[in-house]
Nucleic acid binder design. Structure first.
Length: 261
DNA sequence: CGTATCCTGACC
DNA sequence: GGTCAGGATACG
């Protein structure tokens, strides 16, 4: 269930499993994923060694020794399962990378919205992505520049990966709560003080999750988030019941009292 | 800018 | 049966 902390963790799992191994085959097991990569493209990665695994925003990038790139995005519900080729495929496996030594990394994704694509040497880029949400250089001035032309509300702007790479629906809400900024505040109208708070809020929200990677696996534990999913429960700062609204088709949770418009 | 769409599963 | 889900994108 991937937001940035989960993808970062998953990329580490993939790195451990894949780097230094040689691809025997990449298999796509669901029609939705097959639509994005031709059999010919998949054949091109056979026999290639994995040089590295990198994360950029919520993207995972495997670089191969022929310069090809295998690009994976989990979207809503992807995760890796590491096993061996002779084992039964896990439930909801939608793709698998099988290595020549028998190690198999399966992409488990109940909703089958993940993407796996193959790119020839030099033909892959993520140039449209904004700076990493976790980048310490993302100060008030940098945020102001990213948000200057966004006339709409701040919350949907934070979800736009061209503005910032890596922030998702949960941590956008969390960051705004930490920064005490209303999700409806106009993005381009935030003053320097609130931009500083926002930068800090983004880092606080993400760092908290990154710090204890085990915690993200527990789906129902109380206290995992400050506002996300807490509609009608008391705000942890001011006890006002947390509100919920829909912005750009996504749920936004917020405190109507201590997050200023 | 918001909305619809891709998918499946969990829950009411 | 309907609603919702942690993402991205095509479209109006």
């Amino acid at each position: 269930m991937p937001e940035l902390p989960e993808v970062d963790h998953a990329a580490g799992v993939l790195r451990t499993a894949a780097v230094g191994r040689t691809v025997r085959a990449v298999r796509l097991l669901h029609d939705a994923l097959k639509r994005r990569a031709t059999p010919a493209a998949l054949r091109r990665v056979r026999g290639r060694a994995v040089l590295g695994v990198h994360r950029r925003g919520k993207h995972q990038i495997l670089t191969l020794d022929g310069g090809e790139v295998l690009h994976v995005h989990f979207r809503m519900s992807g995760d890796w399962h590491v096993g061996r080729a002779e084992e039964e495929m896990p439930r909801h496996a939608r793709a698998a990378i099988v290595f020549t030594d028998g190690v198999r990394v399966a992409l488990v994704d109940p909703r089958a919205l993940s993407t796996v694509t193959v790119h020839r040497a030099g033909e892959f880029s993520l140039d449209d992505l904004g700076p990493e949400a976790t980048d310490p250089a993302l100060d008030a001035a940098a945020l102001a520049a990213r948000l200057a032309r966004r006339r709409g509300p701040i919350k949907p702007a934070l979800l736009d990966q061209r503005v910032l790479a890596g922030l998702g629906n949960i941590y956008a809400a969390e960051a705004l709560w930490f920064a005490r900024i209303s999700p409806t505040a106009r993005a381009s109208s935030l003053d320097a003080r609130r931009l500083r708070a926002l930068g800090k809020g983004i880092r606080t929200a993400l760092a908290r999750a990154q710090r204890d990677p085990a915690r993200y696996r527990e789906s129902s534990d109380i206290g995992r988030f400050e506002v996300y999913g807490r509609e009608d429960e008391p705000c942890r700062r001011c006890r006002t019941p947390i509100g919920r609204m829909v912005q750009a088709g996504r749920s936004t949770y917020f405190c109507p009292t201590c997050q200023e418009a």
